[in-house]
């Protein structure tokens, strides 16, 4: 046995054997871990997507996809329509800003959330800036402010607005491009929703 491995050809065979074995063990181990973690990962992803919908349309208990698949219809426990949610996007300063918006039956915005953005830190990212009300020192002392996750102050302006009153939203000075992109995205999404709702009727 040993002699086989000492020949030139045998050496090569030994290399192949070792590498093959290493890869085999690695593959086995990974498939085991993958099988264990994948359900959790899927659940996390689904939860993240769903939680955004529940967040922007409070009161809705279940969501149903529209015929075109462009928006979701939110219904309450009795199956009555509460409102609609949709995803919309627009190019900001340095990235694509993706938003989830919820509107009630009258077309008034009930909630808005930035799903992803990669704007300039300190300027464009102010669209998701949250005003803090307690510091780490309060936290250490155990003295906590209202701890409800707060809404970014810029996005708060959108609540209760409809397509016509969207112009009242004030853009952020120093972050005009990013903040007006958010306004444009919402407007675009609302127009599309209105058109499609008409068609479905």
């Amino acid at each position: 046995m040993r002699r086989v491995f000492e020949s030139r050809k045998g050496e090569l065979l030994y290399f192949v054997l070792v590498l093959g074995l290493v890869c085999l063990v690695s593959a086995g181990l990974l498939s085991f871990v993958y099988a264990k973690t994948q359900p959790l990962v899927e659940a996390q992803k689904a939860k993240a997507a769903n939680s955004a919908m529940y967040y922007v349309l409070p009161g809705a208990e279940s969501f149903e996809r529209s015929k075109e698949g462009d928006f979701y219809i939110g219904k309450d426990k009795q199956g009555r329509i509460v409102g609609y949610t949709f995803e919309t996007n627009e190019k900001g300063y340095s990235s694509e800003i993706v938003l989830m918006v919820g509107v009630d039956k009258d077309g008034k915005i009930t909630g808005i959330k930035v799903l992803s953005q990669n704007e300039t830190p300190g300027l464009g990212t102010r669209i998701v800036e949250v005003k803090a009300d307690s510091t780490i020192w309060d936290k250490i002392k155990g003295k906590e402010g209202e701890n409800a996750p707060r809404m970014p102050w810029f996005l708060e302006q959108f609540l209760g607005k409809d397509r016509m009153s969207l112009v009242e939203v004030k853009t952020i000075s120093g972050a005009t491009i990013s903040s007006s992109a958010v306004v444009r995205a919402v407007k675009k999404g609302l127009e599309k929703l209105e058109k499609e709702l008409l068609q479905e009727k």
Binding site: L29, L30, V33, Y34, T37, Q38, L40, V41, Q44
Partner: peptide, 10 residues
């Protein structure tokens, strides 16, 4: 890869 999978899950 194990670290990555575990981190993504938990």
């Amino acid at each position: 890869t194990i670290v990555e999978l575990v981190m993504e899950a938990y």
